[in-house]
Design a protein around this nucleic acid. Structure first.
Lengths: 158, 158
DNA sequence: TTGCAATTAAGAACAGTTCCTATTTACCTT
DNA sequence: AAGGTAAATAGGAACTGTTCTTAATTGCAA
């Protein structure tokens, strides 16, 4: 993922399948829901409810923060989006529902998506199968991103 | 890990190295700190501050919840314990600092530790190395544990 | 043992999220 | 196209989890 935002035609397609899922789930297609979903779908940075609210405020000045929270919760309950696991006190969300993993920078806290299909293909160790019914496995990689590494180097030299 | 609690001798050893780390970090060895650490170290369920406070309340009735929060934050800053990534609104902690992974039950939300040394040994895909300096990678497996599976089966038959 | 900086208890304050209620909206029926 | 109705929304109040403030207490160095 080199671009900060998705191509419009990929987003278009994602919006269409979202609308279909809403109809299937008996969720009314309100302006707020469509815009909140679109804003999350085009983001690559796993935003919080507050961040989404700020971004949408320009185009929708009367949108309430509560609506953003309520809408995200509704979407999550219908498996249209996911809550991202973090140690942060704010909840973060993503519209990416395909199998993927996360890179987290310990400095700027930015979360990036990545693929690792050979890992996805392996089955879990024998003894874990004893634990119960496995549904999904995902990796989180921690480290310092290039940007933050560069900043640290710069500070050292000062 | 078959037992719900650790053997006393393993815990003893962990307490000793904890005390050593505190002295090295210039952290005073107060009764509260020792007991909070001991309670977390002997737990296998990744408790929240509130849960730890409840467990300690019997033996330490005047221990304040704030002290539990403050102490856990101090320990975390000194890398003596870790905050666990969850989608929960409460923060969860663990004293286990060796490389390990998590199993999370989607029903009872219980978090279990597990090892996967062959995964630990492999290096990450080439393109991720471009991202920055990798420090650690860990897996979270989601599913339904045996206990909850059994409960669901029981409900179906009713 | 004494002195002092660090730590603590208790409750106030704060941040993030959810609830309450009156109003508005989507969309089904005709 | 217009009306009816259940669902959704805005705004603010309430709630939950966490952190801060202050005065009292405690660990530990001298």
């Amino acid at each position: 993922m080199t671009d900060a935002t998705k191509s419009t035609h990929v987003l278009q397609h994602q919006m269409e399948s979202f609308e279909e899922s809403c109809r299937a789930a008996d969720l009314k297609l309100t302006h707020q829901r469509l815009e909140i979903y679109r804003e999350l779908a085009k983001a690559t940075d796993h935003p919080s409810a507050e961040t989404l609210h700020k971004r949408l405020h320009q185009s929708m000045p009367t949108l309430s923060l509560d609506t953003v929270y309520r809408t995200l919760t509704t979407f999550e309950q219908h498996h249209l989006i996911k809550k991202v696991e973090t140690v942060d006190s704010q909840a973060h969300y993503e519209a990416q529902m395909q199998q993927h993993h996360h890179l987290i920078c310990d400095t700027c806290k930015e979360i990036m998506d990545f693929q690792w299909s050979s890992f996805d293909a392996v089955s879990v160790p024998e003894d874990i199968l004893q634990w119960g019914a496995i549904k999904n496995k995902s990796i989180t990689i921690y480290g310092t991103c290039r940007k933050c590494q560069a900043l640290k180097e710069k500070k050292k030299l000062e």
